[in-house]
Design a protein around this nucleic acid. Structure first.
Lengths: 188, 188
DNA sequence: GCCTTAAAGCAAATTATTTGCGTTAAGATC
DNA sequence: GATCTTAACGCAAATAATTTGCTTTAAGGC
């Protein structure tokens, strides 16, 4: 009696998943989002449409799945030798990348899903990096920083302006947000 | 020659718009979002489906339109007699309302639209209220506050945690965010 | 290597979306 | 306030997407 019916993860399933993901990415780059259809993606991936419907449910779920994959960082934040510059480099790159039209689209795909599972993954991409930087600080014996502070007062404003618009995201703005953290008393 | 071909705004058009909006709101309350269909909404509104397709394009655009309407504040922020308590009351209510499951859904609907027109409207709902509170402060001769500061360091963190999850939004947290503003030097 | 069954393919049935055309009624003009 | 123009609606036929029942394939466990 197998209580835990595990999902299949290798071979054909994996091949199809990556074929479909690639098809979405490729077609998505060439076509406006709202003109993509499931049958079109299925054809490009060499798969039958019902496979996509049964596995992902609908287009928005498939897009969200692809978006999380593509937002997943491919490497650790750069080690610049000091905490302040590690943080600065990370936040500058974060702002730069996330405010690109492509990333805005991916974020929209992520937010469109109910349940919060996808957004939680994206949150972890950020917190994991900050934890890496914080651990380096600790290992070097530098004064630590509060990750929640950075999330609330550096990351959150950046995300807010990306989502709602109305403010240009400049390097100066980015540095001002970081400066504000440094001048604030720590909680721990 | 009429250079500006104005869109019709009264009579039948307006009637149909509100009938469809009401149908979406009513059905949306009783049915999970992803089970609603255009034909179903059309029937509930006493309208033909093609009317909805021609006017809104697709479900997500209709949902976004309804969402912006429903997120529009119905009245000015409460006047409590002092700036600090005005701000506190506004932010507490903002956090309370926006973190409800219903508002999360509406926000998802708003973000799902490309172009940023919908999100810009929602941003204005917030900034307008903050401007109202700031003007009251000025009229009373109280020390003014920086609206951008409140957006960046009070509103943005709240929105971030609503969207990404992972932190409980308590009154204490809300007050801590506000306290941080008060202890910060102004720009103007 | 064999067995069980999750996941894929195929095709028919259903449902949603688009489209062409006739009709209604907003809003402009006189 | 009667008339005119045309945006917006309704209807129905044509097209496209989605669901579903059944068959086939191949992961993963033994």
């Amino acid at each position: 009696m197998a209580v835990k019916e595990r999902i299949r993860v290798g071979g054909r399933s994996a091949r199809i998943q990556s074929a479909v993901h690639e098809a979405v990415t490729r077609l998505g780059a060439a076509t406006p989002r709202d003109e993509l259809t499931v049958p079109q993606i299925a054809a490009a991936a060499g798969v039958t449409p019902s496979t996509i419907y049964r596995r992902w449910g609908d287009l928005s779920a498939l897009f969200a799945d692809v978006a999380v994959q593509r937002l997943r960082p491919v490497c650790d934040p750069e080690d610049t030798g000091a905490t302040a510059s590690d943080l600065r480099a990370f936040v500058e790159q974060f702002m730069e990348e996330m405010s690109s039209p492509a990333c805005r689209e991916l974020m929209r795909d992520v937010f469109s899903q109910p349940g919060g599972a996808h957004t939680a993954q994206c949150r972890c991409f950020t917190t994991d990096h900050l934890e890496t930087i914080a651990e380096r600080a600790k290992a070097r014996g530098e004064t630590p920083f509060d990750i929640d502070e950075v999330i609330d007062h550096v990351i959150a404003p950046i995300i807010y302006h990306i989502l709602y618009g109305g403010r240009k995201l400049t390097l100066d703005y980015c540095h001002a947000l970081l400066e504000r953290i440094r001048s604030q008393p720590h909680k721990n």
